[in-house]
Design a protein around this nucleic acid. Structure first.
Lengths: 95, 95
DNA sequence: TATATATTTGACTGATTTTGGCAAGTCAAT
DNA sequence: ATTGACTTGCCAAAATCAGTCAAATATATA
């Protein structure tokens, strides 16, 4: 949703081709295309590699990636915001 | 994590046996046990049925269930709270 | 104690999902 | 027309999941 756009921006910012990124991650070109368009979800491992490749702060990219996964879980739920609030509270208590 | 406890409390509050709940949902008894102990995740469909069965507010139960799913996604991530913040902002913008 | 009933555990299976590749396709710029 | 970049659809292998069954435990009660 959002991570895909971000990855595409980063790649284009670096002037890299799908093919080149694919070679770096050792996957098929089509796969990168699908990641960037949100058609496949992305393994954390790849996010780490991409952060390095794009000289981008790893934590920032991981956060966006993770936010995307959260969004995916709640997107069709009317109780989404309530649930996020609960999870947040729960998590804060844990720290 | 949390939804399981909640469901167990509700069931015990109603004085129902696993077997009886299982019959209601038309699944195996062991399955209910596992749901309550967080060993299996729970389909939304079941949450709805259980809310009815336990005379509990459906939205409230769904929110807890959803919070649990969010928690599951982020629980081992150091960027968990950041990600939740991003997802929250993103979601609010959408409404 | 013995027995009955409630719950948990673990192994198992069929169904579904996911991963990622491949080949053919589109689209733009030569 | 050809080339190069990206997309699309289809597919096989692998992983995950839902739910069951039978055996094991726990708990209560006679």
């Amino acid at each position: 949703m959002i991570i895909g756009q971000k990855l595409r921006e980063l790649r284009e910012g670096k002037g890299l081709l799908l093919r080149q990124v694919a070679a770096e991650l050792e996957v098929d070109t089509a796969y990168i295309s699908k990641m960037e368009r949100g058609e496949k979800n992305i393994k954390k491992e790849y996010i780490i590699l991409l952060a390095k490749l794009y000289d981008c702060d790893e934590n920032e990219l991981v956060a966006i990636w993770l936010a995307d996964k959260i969004f995916d879980v709640v997107k069709d739920e009317s109780m989404a915001l309530n649930a996020i609030g609960i999870a947040q509270k729960h998590l804060k208590k844990l720290i």
